[in-house]
Simulated assay, not measured.
Amino acid sequence: MGFDFQAVERVATISPTDFYNLYVKPQKPVVVERLTADWPAYEKWHFEYIKQVAGDTMVPLYNNDPVDYTKKVNEPDATMSMRDYIDLLLSGQTTLRIFLYSLMKHAPVLQNDFKFPDLKLKLIKSLPFLFFGGKGVNVFMHYDIDLSNILHFHFAGEKRCIIIPPEQTPLMYKIPYSNICHESIDIDHPDFNQWPALRHVHPYVADLRHGEMLYMPEGYWHYMKYITPGFSMSLRAFPIHASNIVRGVFNLFVVRHYDNWMRKRKGAAWIEEKNKRAIAQTNATLSKLRP
């Protein structure tokens, strides 16, 4: 038994005004299927093209090992040339993935292949990020630390996105001073006996294909799984709620640095303490829901 998913609403195309009024203002996710149809990227962005324009670029790679107190947040596990990584990825012999990488800085020609869409959002144009992964590779359940609105475009394959509204955070076994849930949770096959609060979580799901865009409102949890090898680009936009702007800045410049400091100070004991607190805090919320 797993989650009872609700499919993310889909539209083929949409006007900027309708997008903002129907989805941004109410903070509701949506898939826009043909937003990229007139981008050069729609035809170009496949693995061989990336190898041609960025094959010699050294890229940071990540695995899904549990949090290691000896590492800083988002510290890579390995590095490799983009060409060798794509070959390895397509061979099906790696679970390493590229995460939050600003490839545009190293292969600026890619900037000519896409457009910043006019959707009445204040896009942060200096921060287009790329993500790569092979079949079956997943990105742990988390929300973005800066609480941005996210436009997530997928290319060269198919990807499953499970997203959860921020209102359900108290049920998510969120790790204190972090933006992830307890790493022992298997999102694909949740154990509701071990994690009973998850019975009350109601996720959305969207399967993205080449060229499709998923809009994730600010603070949404998301878990990504590559159904086939593929890659994605995320564009970020400032939160529309002032409270989330403040929280995002606080997370970036206070919470993250405090967590790194405590990892150095307390080591593995800090990770264990946070995991225990995540369970205790979520169980306290759950107890209020039970009759």
Rank of each mutant, 00 (worst) to 15 (best):
V30P: 00
E43V: 12
M141S: 13
A206I: 02
V8Q: 02
G92Y: 01
R256F: 07
A54G: 15
G267F: 07
N275T: 00
M141A: 12
A269S: 13
F116Y: 15
T79K: 11
I271R: 05
R34N: 14
M141K: 06
A156D: 15
P66H: 06
N251G: 09
F155K: 05
V31R: 02
P76Q: 06
I279R: 11
Y223E: 09
D188P: 01
G248H: 02
F132V: 06
I163N: 13
R247L: 14
P217C: 04
P170G: 07
L89Q: 05
K174S: 12
A107P: 05
F238I: 11
H257K: 11
L103R: 01
R10H: 10
K122H: 11
K274G: 00
I50C: 07
K135S: 13
Y204K: 05
P291F: 04
E272N: 11
G230T: 04
F5V: 10
K115L: 11
Q6H: 11
L61Y: 08
E43K: 13
M262H: 05
T36S: 15
Y143H: 15
H46E: 10
R277A: 12
A12T: 07
L121Q: 07
K71A: 09
K28C: 09
K44P: 04
P117E: 00
K159R: 12
I187K: 05
F47Y: 07
D113P: 03
P291W: 00
G267I: 08
I185L: 10
P291A: 13
